[in-house]
Amino acid sequence: MNLTNMKFSTLLKLSPIIIFIVLTFAPLFAKTYHLALVTSVLCWIGLAVSWHFFSGTTKYISLGSAAFFGVGVYITAIFGKSLPFPVVLLLAAAINFLFALCVGLVTLRLKGIYFAILTFGLAELLNNAILFWEMQVTGTRGRFVTPIDVYYPILIITFIIILAVIILRRTKLGLGLRMIGESEDAAVHFGVNTTLYKVLGFAVSSMFMGLLGAAFSPRWGYIDSGMAFNPLYSFMPAIMTLFGGTGRIIGPVVGAIVISLLEEYLLTTFKDYFMIILGGIMIIVILTLPEGMTGKLLKKNT
């Protein structure tokens, strides 16, 4: 390896730290619109990375991210006024972890499309159950959340998630999940307690999603079950990860940035046709780059 190459790779390794520092001071000079945009993008990155940690690695495609995101959103709405914000976040993480443990124990017996359908159904079930409860029992629709600026909470949580995932992928849990994704039969015959690892991985991934939901909630000021459990939160992390490429953490990060920015640009430029154009672009990318955007680039380096 020559000198320029080495400089480049050190730069690449340091880039997350540089980006973090730049983003930390961004509110001093950036416009409100840009900050709001960066907040959304960061939230998508966090969701995509969390999704990738479990579903991208094990190939158990979950379409239930919205369930955990939504539970986080509601926890802030319920406890936000009585408890300090950091405590609410920790509570959301803990509740989502336990909730996902229970869900995982039941659903992870299923494989392939069945797991996807069941997790998708879970998000819809929660959405409709809460809607029913609000209409029949409490007689309200949605809840108010004390609005605060969520830029820093989302920034910090997303970077914590990325860091945690990088570390976790190097632990036994990360290796076990990878072996399950590669060949579950072989994994279980070579000493991996697959049930335990799948449930644990799913719970950790869901915990991150709930944390993001809880942190994002105050941005809206008012939330209802349709917003909290919006199916977009289920589909987008999966699409972003597949778009960016599985295998490495850079995949979901790149996928989330590209798709959320593309969506924003198309939405503001062609507001009536943006979904059609976005769909077209995705079809082209999936057909031409089956390994995702980062797949080809990374292959060249190894």
């Binding site: 036994k172 290796l175 072996m179 590669e182 060949s183 072989a186 994994a187 070579f190 000493g191 295998g247």
Partner: peptide, 24 residues
Amino acid sequence: FQIPKPFPNMSVYENILAVSIFGC
């Protein structure tokens, strides 16, 4: 396995390393 079930996207070294970490 009768039909080999390697960890296809891992290198030969990683295949054996992963199993030696979990297997005993």
